[in-house]
Design a protein around this nucleic acid. Structure first.
Lengths: 228, 228
DNA sequence: CGGTTTCTTGAGCGCCGTCAAGTAAGGTGG
DNA sequence: CCACCTTACTTGACGGCGCTCAAGAAACCG
C-alpha cells in the first residue's frame, strides 16, 4: 500500500534520527517492544505514570495539553525517528496521540535510564535533542504570541515543507482541527488563511491535505513576519 | 540596600539551583568570571556566536525573540541560580537582557563542554533542567494559544507567587511591557486585566509592582481555565 | 518640587471567534 | 461502479475580545 508511506511526515534532520548519531538505537532494539497506535488513538495520557518511552518507527504523533473546558493546545508533532515520553517527573505532562496509524518502539523508562547512566554519549545526544526542542518551543511561542493568522499558517507550511521530502509538494497528514489547535486558532480561521494564501498565488490546494508551494520566498517572508 | 534584595525573583526550586544537586557549581567557580548587567542591558543577542554560558548570581533576566517589525515575545524569565546561554547550535537563538541590575557568572562554553564530557552527573542534571524548561515551555504554549487575557495574567501571577518567597505578597520586578510581551498581549490589556482582578477582589495593587493575593483559590482556578 | 517615565483608563475599530449553512471528500454496501 | 451516508472542509454573516490611538493619573528620580 502506498497510503502508509504518504501519511508519514519525513523525519526531521535532528541528531537522534540520523543513524550515525543514534546511540539510543541499540538500547531500544534490545529492550523495546513493538506497538501500534491507530489514528487518533492515545499512546499515553497527561498525568499517567511515565513508565515508558516511545520511539516512532512509522507514522506521526501529536503531543497536547487540554484545559478543563476542552480547549486544546498541540505543542508539537513528531515523526519517524523521534523519541517521546522521556519526562522530567514521574508522570507524563502531556497527552500523546497518533495522527495517523503509527508503529512505535515501547521501552521501559528504567531500562533507558540505566542505559543512559552508562553511556555518556547517548546522554549527550539526548541533551542535544532536548535543547533543540526547547529552541523549537521558543519559535512556537513567538508564533502563538505575536503572529497573525496568515503568518501562523504560513509558518506552519514553511516548517512542514522543510521537513518534507519533496519541498514544493507537501502532504499534510493532520486535520484542520489539529492545525488549529497547534496554531492557537479555530478551524474556520485556518481554512480562511489557506484560501487567502491560494488567492494570493502563494500556494495551490489541489486537495485539502495536499498543497503545492508556488512562491516559496513569499511564504517564508510571510512566515517570518517580514511583510506589511 | 534593601532594594536589590526586593528586586530579585526567588529562585525556582529546580534541580540546578539547589546546592546539593549542583555539580556545575565547581566548574563555574573555577572557570567563570563575574560580570554585571544593568537594567535593560543585553547579556547576549540572538545570532551572536554562543561562546559563553551564564549563571545568574543575583537579579533577573528575560530571554526573547523579536520579529523584523519589532514584535517581541519573551519566552521566559530567569532568576538567581539559573543557567542561560547553553545552546544546541553555534549561535544564541534568543536575546538575553537584564530585567533589573544583575550579577552573572560568565563561563566559556568550551570549558563547560569539557567539564560535562567528564562529569556524567552534571550532564544528567543539565538534561533534567532542559526537560523541566521544555515542560514549562509547553505550559506557556497553552497560555499563549488558548487562554484569555484575564487567564493569562492570573497564570502569570500564579507562577510568580509560586516562585516568590512570600506567597501572598508578590513583588513584580518586570515592567508592564515585559509582562505583555511574555503573555502575548499589549500593556493596556495587561493593565485592564490587573484592574479587573482587583475589582473582583482576587488581588490588591498597593503599588504597580507590588500585588497582594487576596483569594488564591480564585486566582488558581482562573489561571487553570476552570472558570466560566 | 518639577520633569520624566510608567501605568491606567477611555473610545473606537479590526481581526478572529462563533454560529450556521453549504460543499467536497472519503468510506461502505449494494 | 455508483448511490448513500458520514465526516471533513469551506464559506458567509455577525459579534466580541483585545488592539490602536489618545489622554490622564500615578510613580519614580534627581
Amino acid at each position: 500500500m502506498l497510503t502508509l508511506a504518504r501519511t508519514e511526515i519525513a523525519s526531521r534532520p535532528s541528531a537522534a534520527s540520523r543513524k550515525s548519531e543514534d546511540p539510543l538505537g541499540q538500547c531500544l532494539q534490545r529492550a523495546a517492544t513493538r506497538v501500534t497506535a491507530h489514528r487518533d488513538e492515545a499512546i499515553f495520557w497527561e498525568g499517567d505514570a511515565a513508565d515508558h518511552c516511545y520511539r516512532i518507527v512509522t507514522g506521526a504523533v501529536r503531543i497536547s495539553k487540554v484545559l478543563p473546558d476542552g480547549r486544546r493546545q498541540i505543542a508539537d508533532f513528531f515523526a519517524a525517528g523521534d523519541l517521546i515520553g522521556f519526562e522530567p517527573g514521574a508522570s507524563y505532562d502531556f497527552t500523546a496521540e497518533a495522527v495517523v496509524d503509527s508503529v512505535l518502539l515501547k521501552c521501559p523508562r528504567r531500562q533507558l535510564e540505566a542505559f543512559l547512566a552508562e553511556d555518556a554519549a547517548a546522554q549527550r545526544t539526548l541533551l542535544s535533542v532536548a535543547l533543540e526542542r526547547l529552541s523549537a518551543a521558543q519559535r512556537q511561542m513567538v508564533l502563538l504570541g505575536r503572529k497573525s493568522a496568515s503568518e501562523k499558517v504560513a509558518s506552519f507550511l514553511s516548517v512542514l515543507s522543510a521537513r518534507s521530502r519533496t519541498v514544493t509538494e507537501v502532504y499534510i497528514p493532520m486535520s484542520r482541527t489539529d492545525i488549529a489547535d497547534h496554531l492557537g486558532l479555530t478551524i474556520e480561521t485556518v481554512s480562511r488563511a489557506f484560501t487567502k494564501l491560494r488567492r494570493q498565488g502563494i500556494i495551490a490546494l489541489p486537495r485539502p491535505q495536499h498543497i503545492e508551494i508556488l512562491d516559496a520566498d513569499a511564504l517564508h517572508d510571510l512566515a517570518d513576519g517580514a511583510c506589511s
